[in-house]
């Protein structure tokens, strides 16, 4: 939790600097590629970094989407998604990074209408075998929304 934009940005940059190969951002500033379907956005990471064959990577992406009960958005594109679906798409894409250290930057900026962090923690639990660690960055004044977390 940070009390200023400067402190948050500084910390984000430090994290990116410390783990350049593992950091997997989930942020409004790191959007989904809009001219690709969601499953392609997710598969892209495996296809590029591990040279995984297209079909295998895309099958994996659809499988993971089904795991978070979002199989129906696989063939949709970013503008057609609601904030929750967009968040899960971004989260799964981040989880595709090898030994991913997921960095969620202000989750309530991605899903503004959320009352608490439960949706995010539930989604994270469903895919907890896909990442190494998860770090949530937010402002001090959002602390209330995080409850006991």
């Amino acid at each position: 939790m940070f009390d200023s934009e400067q402190a948050l940005n500084q910390s984000l940059h430090q994290f990116l600097h410390d783990y350049p190969l593992q950091v997997a951002p989930v942020s409004v500033d790191v959007p989904l590629i809009s001219n690709q379907d969601i499953y392609m956005n997710i598969a892209l990471i495996k296809q590029y970094h591990e040279d995984m064959p297209k079909r295998q990577a895309q099958r994996l992406a659809v499988e993971y989407l089904e795991r978070v009960d979002l199989g129906q958005i696989a063939y949709k594109r970013n503008p057609a998604l609601n904030p929750e679906e967009r968040f899960c798409g971004m989260l799964l894409r981040a989880a595709m990074v090898k030994d991913a250290m997921i960095l969620i930057d202000q989750p309530f900026k991605i899903i503004p209408h959320l009352k608490d962090i439960q949706f995010v923690t539930t989604a994270l639990k469903k895919i907890d075998d896909l990442y190494l660690s998860c770090h949530i960055y937010d402002y001090q004044w959002m602390k209330e929304k995080y409850g006991e977390l």
């Binding site: 997997a24 951002p25 892209l44 590029y48 970094h49 894409r93």
Partner: peptide, 9 residues
């Protein structure tokens, strides 16, 4: 483009 860079693509 920044997204791609962030994911080291």
């Amino acid at each position: 483009i920044k997204t791609l860079e962030m994911f080291r693509i």
